[in-house]
Design a protein around this nucleic acid. Structure first.
Lengths: 187, 187
DNA sequence: ACCTGAACACCGTTCAAGT
DNA sequence: ACCTGAACACCGTTCAAGT
């Protein structure tokens, strides 16, 4: 038996991962929750409040998941494989995509509070990737490592977007294989 | 003095590159054109018709641009630099992005006729990139070359998305530099 | 051939009213 | 504390009516 507020957030996340922030309708969301659309506003006064809460929680969950990986192993290749698997899982879940990736496209129509959480999500990912890259090559230049981490983050997001547009998970795998083969993602 | 239909398409393209297909409003578009929203429907009966026309034209224009590059040089490094510059130009234009990249995210809410044009746009890009990769390495396995072309297309789209989310063109340049340094994009 | 105003069911938001 | 119905200005779409 979940809190109404938690139910709203869980269902809203799934909607945004499929339809974006612009595609999130309070009426549809309310229907899914089983209350009226005006009641959503009791828990989240505006759509901006809901969007910011969703993006913040998304980042917190990502951080927990990624730190969980680091607690289990310090083998860079394993860690990167698990990282890629997280993005694959979104596609497996009815061809959904990273919520903040979708929001990145919607940047111009995002309230400022949502924009800053989307930025924070990217920061969490890049910081974790940089940490893993340092495990693989501790002697590397820190600035170059950070750049490389951002490149991996961006490339995996692009692979997810390309695969989503065709509804083809095999394409995601194929693109990631190329990233590994060319050396963007270290094996 | 442009055709009304052409004016609609030009202004609509700029809107979709900034706000997506979902963010394209007939009322806003009509205001920009200088007619009433009901009049847009005379030229494009439904939003799906307009969206499909936009995506098709976008692909035709891309093909013309890319073939123009090939007519001027057959140096792979130069061609790839020009290809990257096309995506950079969208960001330079008020932080806009590739129209079909945005539409890829909106996949679930796209009419079928628009979806197929988005797919066709990707095909045009991948075919051109594969052609350039063959210039660089004619002996390479054709299947691997095609995979590599798709990886480059996806990665550049991801770089554009990441840079857009921060409104930071320097980040786009930095990510592309990493793609070149790691060997994903051949120099 | 091209445009318009008015209507329809939708959207986020507000608010007075319920329990 | 939590929910609701009704209203507001918005959305794409339709259509009869204008020129």
């Amino acid at each position: 038996m979940l809190d109404t507020r938690e139910t709203i957030m869980t269902l809203a996340r799934a909607i945004v991962q499929a339809h974006g922030y612009q595609g999130l309708s309070f009426r549809d969301l309310a229907k899914a929750v089983g209350i009226k659309s005006a009641s959503i506003h009791y828990h989240f006064p505006t759509k901006a409040d809901l969007g910011a809460a969703l993006a913040r929680r998304y980042g917190e969950d990502a951080r927990a998941t990624l730190d969980g990986f680091l607690a289990e192993t310090s083998d860079p290749a394993t860690l990167l494989r698990r990282y890629v698997a997280v993005f694959r899982r979104a596609l497996e879940n009815d061809n959904r995509m990273c919520m903040c990736g979708f929001m990145a496209a919607e940047h111009d129509d995002l309230p400022e509070a949502v924009k800053s959480e989307v930025r924070a999500f990217a920061d969490i990912n890049v910081a974790w990737l940089a940490q893993v890259l340092r495990l693989a090559d501790p002697a590397a230049d820190p600035t170059a490592t950070e750049k490389r981490a951002f490149a991996i983050f961006a490339a995996i997001g692009g692979a997810q977007l390309a695969a989503r547009s065709r509804g083809d998970i095999a394409l995601f795998d194929s693109i990631v294989e190329s990233y590994c083969a060319t050396g963007l993602i270290p094996a």
